[in-house]
Amino acid sequence: MPSYRRHPLVVPVLLCAAVVLAARPTTADGEPGGDGAGDGPGSGLSERVARLYEEAAVATQQYEAGRVEAEAQRAKARRLEQLLGRERQGITVLREDLGRIARAQYRGGGGLPVAAQLVLSSSPDKLMRGQHVLARTNMTVGNAIGRSRRAETRLAADEARAAGARQALERHTAQLAVLKKGIEQKLEQARWQLQGQADASVAAGACRGAERLDGSPTNDKGKWAVPVDGYTLSASFGSGGARWASRHTGQDFAVPIGTPVRAVGAGRVVRVSCGGAFGIEIVLRHADGYYTQYAHLASVAVDQGENVTAGQWIGQSGTSGNSTGPHLHFEVRVTPEVGSAVDPVPWLAARGAPVG
């Protein structure tokens, strides 16, 4: 059996060769070969990440709607608690009224029941007045007892409603939290799997086949778009830094790995390439003669030579190449090559796609 100790470069060379063979071959100018099907292990991962992004967006909307509903339920619970407090005070007052009526009867009758006072009355007038007092007293007592019972019934019902509202709120909030957390965990795992594929492609210098992203939104014909959503602006055009030979040549949009990247305008794909400082990159040519570059990608969703529309998803952001973290490096150029960049922020603003 041959020993690999005598040939220490054999294993790395064989591994690199396996990566190159597994990756999609490219032409000399970076144009992908083959049919762009994205075959092999991991095929469909880009679409899965895009789908998880959509699910996460829906879950976030549901969570926000649930949060608003929860606030409304909290306000409702507070109103119910205030109502319960007033009802409890009302019941206390009713009970005090019953006590006052009972004490008044006792004092007015000298300790005798009202019926006994009527039997012992000495004149018809006194008897009639006694009957009137008795009827009025019975009505007062009956009304007081009825109000007290209705108030206690209403209090019990409102207490049950308040408890039900609180329990429903707690269940709803817990369900939303579990849903959102589960999708975020799946998305984070898929993001780094996607980035691992991107790093392998860059190491091999060969891009994987374009993987189409279903549900890609597009703008109306002739409109322009910002390349990503949910971004934070980081390194700007012309800024200095140790990572650039002179000045920064584009605008960086800090976004998580796998964020769908859009074509800012209609155009034609003139380059899809891997390797080098920009990692996985796409360059488009637009009808007005300008070029736009999208770099440090994790995947591509278009092939070289393809026509794209404004707002179409052309890839997914990543951190491939010379990158310190997940972001999209976006450039506007007067030629397809490095060194001809112009400031992309005012360029986009002039076309109705302000950045900020």
Rank of each mutant, 00 (worst) to 15 (best):
R136V: 11
F330P: 02
P124F: 14
L83N: 02
A198T: 14
A56N: 07
K180N: 11
G230D: 12
D35T: 06
G66D: 06
R243E: 11
P354S: 10
G279D: 03
G42I: 04
G230H: 03
I145T: 06
H286V: 11
H7D: 11
G30S: 14
T292G: 02
N143P: 00
G318N: 04
V264T: 11
R171K: 03
G305I: 05
Q316T: 08
E71R: 02
T249H: 00
L187G: 07
K223G: 01
L134Y: 09
A168Q: 15
A254N: 11
Q197P: 02
L45R: 06
E71V: 09
V261P: 04
G110W: 01
V20D: 03
S317E: 13
G230A: 14
G267I: 14
P217G: 15
R149M: 12
Q61T: 15
A23S: 15
R95H: 03
Q197E: 14
L169P: 02
R243T: 09
R150A: 15
R107E: 15
P227E: 01
S323E: 06
L187I: 01
E55Q: 15
G315I: 10
I280L: 10
W313K: 00
V20Q: 10
T292F: 04
S122P: 01
R208F: 06
Y290P: 05
K180Q: 12
A77M: 05
G99V: 04
P41C: 00
A235F: 13
G110L: 01
R95A: 08
L120I: 00
I145C: 01
V119A: 07
G241R: 02
G182M: 10
L80I: 07
D97M: 00
D229H: 03
Q61E: 08
A75Y: 04
Y63M: 01
R6D: 00
A298N: 08
S299A: 15
D288L: 12
Q175T: 10
L169G: 10
L118G: 10
A22F: 09
G38K: 00
D229E: 11
A151N: 00
R51K: 08
L94I: 01
H327T: 10
